[in-house]
């Protein structure tokens, strides 16, 4: 195993840093995503509700960055703002674009987001086709990712003929094939069963390992965060902001099952839970108060 941690997540004991030290990374010029004072307010029945408050964040180039938080902490809002699908109320989000005509970001959405009316191939090549990329290049790129995700034999199938895990593989292929600067992932595996989830996490890591693009990955699963991430941001519940940053010291490439055997793994999971505990109970109290809560609770 060749450990080549470019961002050098310090190996050894678990390091938990306070939210304020986020600015430390700003000094480095390899910052890919820079967020300052990000605030998002929504109008709910004439009342202003703050979803995100004064969030500062730096994500270095090539980092697999995880965001963990209780439900309703604004993590999806944060990702949508980064994807330009939503706009901030205040503050700024800057993505340092490498400007080679490639798209800034591609998102892997939560749940079923591939088009039911397109075949696997048409779905996976969507971004490239919309950009008018040369046919031969589309064939090579999409073919590569369908190969990687084991979908080559299913390329002419329609989504309803596929299992949930395979549909999410199409979504992964679509995002990777689009060759963006950063990849945004919004709980892509939350709808899958435990076995499929583990398989897909493993596949995702293998595919990511080829290019090591910057990833921002949202999850409500602490296990998922520790398994996949280089660095984890724990968010506060409502309004959402950074509570703590946890560095994950595991080398790459990783083996998902092997990882979970290690004593440090449990340590980090425990550490994050420590950070999260208060937030989860706060979020649950709020949910209960809202009575009409159909939301998924944190954890399972």
């Amino acid at each position: 195993m060749t450990g080549h941690a470019t961002e050098a997540p310090t190996p050894g004991p678990v390091t938990v840093t306070g939210a304020t030290t986020a600015a430390a990374d700003a000094a480095a010029d390899n910052v890919k995503v820079r967020i300052r004072g990000l605030t998002k307010e929504f109008d709910v029945k004439g009342r202003s509700v703050t979803a995100l408050q004064e969030l500062d964040l730096d994500i270095p180039r090539g980092q697999f960055f995880m965001i963990v938080g209780p439900s309703g902490c604004g993590k999806t809002t944060l990702l949508r703002i980064m994807a330009h699908l939503d706009s901030p109320t205040r503050g700024e989000v800057e993505v340092r674009h490498s400007a080679e005509g490639r798209p800034e970001n591609s998102m892997i959405f939560q749940g079923d987001s591939i088009f039911p009316w397109m075949t696997v191939w048409e779905n996976a090549s969507y971004g490239l086709r919309m950009r008018g990329v040369d046919k031969a290049e589309v064939r090579d790129t999409v073919g590569h990712y369908l190969d990687k995700t084991g979908l080559t034999d299913f390329k002419d199938c329609y989504p309803h003929q596929l299992s949930g895990g395979m549909r999410q593989r199409v979504s992964i292929s679509r995002a990777f094939a689009n060759d963006p600067d950063i990849l945004l992932m919004d709980e892509p595996f939350s709808a899958l069963d435990e076995q499929n989830k583990t398989l897909l996490q493993d596949e995702l890591l293998r595919i990511w390992d080829e290019t090591r693009k910057t990833v921002v990955f949202i999850t409500h699963s602490v296990d998922e965060a520790v398994t996949l991430g280089d660095r984890i941001m724990v968010m506060t519940a409502h309004p959402g902001t950074a509570k703590a940053f946890v560095d994950v010291p595991f080398e790459r490439p990783r083996d998902v099952l092997d990882l979970r055997h290690r004593p440090e793994y449990g340590e980090i999971v425990y550490e994050i839970w420590q950070q999260l505990r208060d937030e989860v109970s706060r979020s649950q109290q709020r949910d209960r108060a809202a009575t009409t809560s159909s939301r998924r609770r944190f954890g399972r």
């Binding site: 994807a83 699908l85 798209p103 970001n105 591609s106 998102m107 959405f109 749940g111 987001s113 088009f115 009316w117 397109m118 969507y126 971004g127 919309m130 950009r131 679509r174 689009n178």
Partner: peptide, 27 residues
């Protein structure tokens, strides 16, 4: 609405949204 988000995220123009999302989705 997610399908519109997807097409926007993957850079579809208005005409492409019409062709690849609105018409087949409503078919």
């Amino acid at each position: 609405p997610m399908y519109y988000d997807v097409s926007k995220n993957f850079g579809a123009s208005r005409w492409q949204v019409f062709k690849t999302v609105a018409v087949p989705g409503a078919m």
